[in-house]
Design a protein around this nucleic acid. Structure first.
Lengths: 237, 237
DNA sequence: AAAATAAATATGTCGTACATTTTTAAAATT
DNA sequence: AATTTTAAAAATGTACGACATATTTATTTT
């Protein structure tokens, strides 16, 4: 059994306890987005602690996007934004290589799986947008422009999925991708390493064609191949 | 162009500014995990604000898992945990139906795409663990036990992916899944609705067999079918 | 009754003080 | 002189009180 679950018993600060207590309160009282919270002073008095401590606990909720406070007016339960604030944590400068690799792998997983959703929604999706990006890419000569188009193309796929949560997720991870891209840009040898001799790459145009006239299974497979070039990791361990 | 990018110009609180300033400082000074930060008072003096304001900004970073503070000792840059604290935001009670659907759809996307990684790593993965879960499931009679096994099976897939980030992601989303499961459990009619007459479901055993003797493409396709039963949404819009 | 004014309200910011525990420095003992 | 004991300094955590500011509510004036 995992022992981590029950670690923090009495190593909790006062604010930690207040936070837990508050969270419990919000849940049991069934607070909903838009509902307004008791005033800081009321909370402080009710819990028998200082306003300072209450404010720090509330500050955590605010940081997590659980509550919102309007100056001089009061605080309300916020409509949760799932990936709120994650961008700030995902600083490529702070991430270790392993996590970075894992995130990139996760991207592969998602974009391969994205095929199904794309096929379900493509009738009301703007495939022309993809076409335009591809044309721009095919005309581009400088590497930086090609990379830009690449990012644009894949971003557009997320957009066409029509799933705002997935879109948000990609937006959140983009700094990581960009970072890896630029790193790869500096060193195309590693970039193209570990690709088998007989490997025939899949272009963005291939993907679009499949999206237009193919089926999800084909798309998944092609996307897998298309993204493989970025993964030394995947092919080795 | 999206106007949202440049909205908050002068609607920033002092703490907001301090936070930005601090983040900038940490980035340009190239702080790395483990490095210790200046003391609160030093920061306050350097920026010409009170310790209170500094503390609130630091509190945000702590909440986001960017820094860690050891009582009476000092604060250090933390090794970022990408999905730190996200669980608390993902309270099913607060999520609207649309987001919930989108998250569930994202799960489909990921588990379909997971096939590739599973096949890459299955040699050092414990397929026997899956076998055991399936056996338990096949013996189970009560619905609640079956649901439990179902959750266990899918969780195990994430685990076998060997990608800790993906695993963390699933852990984070599990409360949402559980919530939907129990809601579905109350109403099996809706649960099984919208499934075509000629639909032949894919069992967990089918998936395991494919994992053992099939190929990624087959697995992706079967996983797609397997998860389809949960999606009225996917088949309609 | 409508408009203008005043009071109450709630969060944001500040300053100070003290508790607690770790680290560092100093003193005492062998 | 080296080790142990004791004392001081340091840093975060908690608390209280005060004021600023902008909003809301109540009161007064026209």
């Amino acid at each position: 059994m995992s022992i981590e679950k029950l670690r923090p018993v009495e190593n909790l600060s006062q604010v930690d306890k207040i936070e837990m207590s508050l969270q419990e309160y919000l849940r049991t009282e069934n607070f909903q987005p838009g509902d307004s919270l008791p005033k800081e002073l009321e909370l402080a008095q009710a819990m028998g602690v200082s306003r300072t401590a209450i404010r720090e606990a509330l500050s955590r909720f605010r940081t997590l996007g659980i509550i919102e406070s309007r100056k001089n007016r009061g605080m309300i339960i916020a409509k949760p934004d799932v990936f709120n604030n994650m961008e700030r944590v995902l600083d490529p400068q702070l991430l270790d290589d392993e996590t970075m690799n894992e995130i990139f792998e996760m991207r592969l997983v998602i974009e391969v799986g994205l095929g199904d959703v794309l096929f379900l929604r493509k009738h009301n999706a703007d495939l022309g947008a993809l076409e335009k990006i591809i044309e721009k890419e095919e005309k581009a000569t400088k590497k930086i422009d090609i990379v830009k188009c690449d990012i644009e193309f894949h971003s557009m796929l997320y957009k066409l999925s029509g799933n705002k949560t997935i879109m948000r997720f990609q937006k959140m991870l983009r700094p990581v991708f960009d970072h890896v891209y630029t790193k790869l840009g500096e060193n195309t040898a590693a970039f193209a390493a570990n690709i088998p001799e007989d490997f025939s790459p899949i272009t963005h145009r291939d993907l679009l064609n499949t999206l237009k006239h193919g089926d999800p299974e084909q798309f998944r497979s092609q996307m897998r191949t298309h993204l493989m070039v970025y993964f030394k990791k995947l092919s080795t361990d």
